[in-house]
Simulated assay, not measured.
Amino acid sequence: MLEYAVEARRINKHGSVAKTKDAEITLDTDVAGRDDAFNPAELLLAAISACMIKGIERVAPITKFEYRGIEVRLKGKRQDSPPFMAEITYELIIDTDEDDHRLELIHSNVRKYGTIYNTIAAATKLEGIVRRKTD
């Protein structure tokens, strides 16, 4: 089994920092919020998007899927009581000349083999579409 480790600590009432390996990210843990850092819900969405992009990076060389870029747009809906991410939707946009069938196969692979994707999908409604980037 793979294991992961992250350490986080409060800097002050306006924020915290999380570290892993040689990387560091500022966290929005200020009750009032802040615009220069990801809050916990945004970090969750970012983790899903990173999982999706990494999944494509992993499978593309194996399947010889050619692409120029990937964009993921996510939206989360939070329920207030009890606090819960009730729904997450996404749009996976791939800049590619591959046909629609191969585009859908990549999307299927992301849904089937993404660790974070599958973890979140088991806990809440997670739905989205894949589409080709158009100018």
Rank of each mutant, 00 (worst) to 15 (best):
L2I: 15
E3T: 14
Y4R: 07
A5Q: 14
V6Q: 02
V6E: 10
V6M: 07
E7H: 11
E7L: 12
R10W: 02
I11H: 07
K13I: 08
K13H: 15
K13N: 15
H14F: 01
G15P: 00
T20K: 10
E24G: 00
I25F: 03
D28Q: 02
T29D: 03
D30C: 10
V31I: 15
A32H: 13
D35S: 13
D35V: 14
D35Y: 11
D36T: 07
D36R: 09
A37N: 08
A37G: 04
A37I: 11
N39Q: 09
A41K: 10
E42K: 03
A46Q: 05
I48H: 12
A50V: 11
A50R: 06
A50G: 04
M52E: 08
M52V: 04
K54A: 00
G55Q: 00
R58E: 15
R58L: 14
V59I: 15
V59C: 11
A60W: 06
A60H: 04
T63Q: 14
F65R: 00
R68M: 08
R68I: 05
I70N: 06
V72E: 01
R73G: 11
L74M: 00
L74F: 00
K75C: 09
R78L: 13
Q79M: 08
D80S: 10
P82R: 05
F84H: 08
T89S: 12
L92M: 03
L92N: 01
L92I: 04
T96M: 13
T96C: 13
D97R: 12
D97I: 10
D97H: 12
D97V: 09
E98P: 01
E98Y: 11
D99T: 10
H101M: 10
E104W: 04
E104G: 05
L105R: 08
I106R: 00
K112Y: 08
K112E: 06
T115Y: 07
T119G: 00
A121P: 05
A122D: 14
L126S: 04
G128Y: 10
K133G: 08
K133M: 13
T134E: 06
D135S: 13
